Amino acid sequence: MEQKQFDKIKNGNGFIAALDQSGGSTPKALAAYGVPESSYSSEDEMFDLVHEMRTRIITSPAFNPDHILGAILFEQTMDSKIEGKYTGDYLWDEKGIVPFIKVDKGLADEEKGVQLMKPNPGLDDLLKRANERNMFGTKMRSVIKEPNKDGIKDVVDQQFDVGKQIIEAGLVPIIEPEVDINSDLKESIEEMLRDEILKHLNTLKEDQLVMLKLTIPSKANLYKTLIDHPNVVRVVALSGGYSRDEANEMLKKNDGLIASFSRALSQDLNADQSDEAFNAELEKAVLSIYNASI
C-alpha cells in the first residue's frame, strides 16, 4: 500500500468516482450516455465504447485531484490503456487520483431478502493482477432489500470474509452492502446493517483496514460510529438511484460521509456533446458532489 495514496484517501477532501459499470450495467450506462445498443454488435465492441466514455471522463480537465480522491474501475478498464499507460497508472501518475478495482462477479439470486455476491473462484488471480496494475484497493457489492436479520448477517459475513482475503493480498477492500432505496423499511435495514458491520469491525486486528460504501442513510449520521472506527479508512456513499440533487442534499446532512457516485456523476454527459459542453457538464457535476462531500 502506497503511503501517499493512503493519506489522500484517509484525509483528503473530495469524493471517489465510480466508473465501474460491469457487463450487466454497461448497456444502461452507454444508453444514458447516448450510445444505443444498436451501436455495437458484440461484448468487445460494447466494452471498447464504454472505455472511450471513461477515457473521455478521466482525461477531462474537470476530472482533477483537487476534487476527486479516487476512481473505481471495472476489470476491463484496469487492463486497458489511456494515452499509452494502464488506466490505474494514468490516474495516479498523470492525475494524482487513487485507483480502485471492482472485483465481484455480480449478484446471486435473492434469498432471505438479500442478494449475496456470486462465487468468485478467480479472485486470487484478479488480486495478483490488481497489484501488478498498481491498484490501491478493491470494491465489491451485495444488495439488501428487506430487514431480514439472517440475510443481513449473511451479506456482512460474506463481505468481511472476502475483505480479509483482499487485505492479505495487500489491498484495501471497499465493502459495499447496498441497501435498496425503494424498500419501505429502509431505515430498519440500515440500523441492522450498522450493528452487524460494527460487530465485524470490532473483531479485526489493528492492521486490518477496510473502507465501507453504503447507501446514504435515511436517518442522518446513522453511520457515524462506523466513520469513526479505527479500522475504517473512509466511509463513502453510493447514490443508489437517487438523482444527483437528491443524493447531494442527503449527503450534506451526514458528517464525515463522502460520495462515491456513478449514475449521479455522469447523468448529464452525452456522447454527442462538444468537448467544451462535456467538460462544463462534468465540472458542474464534480463541483456539486465535491461540495456535498465536504
Score class of each variant (00 low, 15 high):
Val114Asp: 12
Ile258Leu: 02
Gly70Glu: 12
Gly241His: 04
Thr77Tyr: 11
Asp195Cys: 03
Gly84Ser: 09
Ala247Pro: 01
Val114Cys: 06
Met78Ala: 12
Ala31Arg: 13
Pro65Val: 01
Glu43Gln: 14
Asp44Arg: 04
Asp48Trp: 04
Asp93Lys: 12
Pro99Gln: 04
Ile9His: 10
Gly170Trp: 12
Asp184Phe: 03
Ala17Tyr: 12
Ala220Met: 06
Gln3Tyr: 13
Asp272Val: 00
Asp245Gly: 14
Lys199Thr: 05
Gly106Leu: 10
Ser42Arg: 03
Leu269Gly: 11
Asp124His: 15
Ile294Ser: 15
Gln21Phe: 05
Met250Phe: 13
Lys139Glu: 13
Pro173Ile: 02
Ala285His: 15
Ser188Lys: 13
Asp180Ser: 14
Gly23Gln: 12
Arg54Ile: 02
Glu196Ser: 14
Leu73Ala: 08
Ser42Glu: 04
Val232Gly: 02
Asp44Leu: 10
Gln21Met: 11
Pro230Met: 14
Leu30Thr: 07
Asn182Phe: 08
Asp228Arg: 04
Glu45His: 04
Lys95Leu: 08
Met53Asp: 06
Asp184Thr: 00
Val236Gly: 09
Leu116Thr: 02
Gly14Tyr: 11
Lys213Asp: 06
Ala169Tyr: 04
Gly137Leu: 09
Val35Pro: 00
Asn291Gln: 14
Met211Ile: 03
Gly163Glu: 10
Asn254Gln: 05
Leu171Thr: 05
Tyr290Arg: 05
Ala17Asp: 10
Ile57Tyr: 04
Asp180Pro: 05
Ile181Asn: 13
Asn202Leu: 04
Leu30Ile: 03
Tyr223Thr: 00
Tyr33Ser: 08
Lys149Thr: 07
Asp207Val: 01
Phe100Trp: 09
Thr87Met: 13
Pro119Val: 00
Leu265Phe: 09
Leu19Trp: 13
Ala169Cys: 05
Met1Trp: 06
Asp104Asn: 07
Thr55Ala: 13
Leu287Ser: 02
Lys95Cys: 05
Gly241Leu: 06
Lys10Tyr: 13
Ser266Glu: 11
Lys102Tyr: 05
Ala71Lys: 11
Pro119Leu: 09
Leu73Thr: 07
Asp150Cys: 01
Glu132Asn: 08
Arg244Phe: 12
Glu178Gln: 13
Ala285Asp: 00
Asp93Ser: 07
Glu187Asn: 11
Phe278Trp: 06
Val210Glu: 07
Lys213Ile: 08
Ser41Gln: 15
Glu276Tyr: 08
Glu191Thr: 06
Asp195Gly: 09
Thr215His: 11
Ala277His: 07
Met140His: 13
Glu111Gln: 14
Lys4Asp: 12
Gly151Val: 03
Lys10Thr: 01
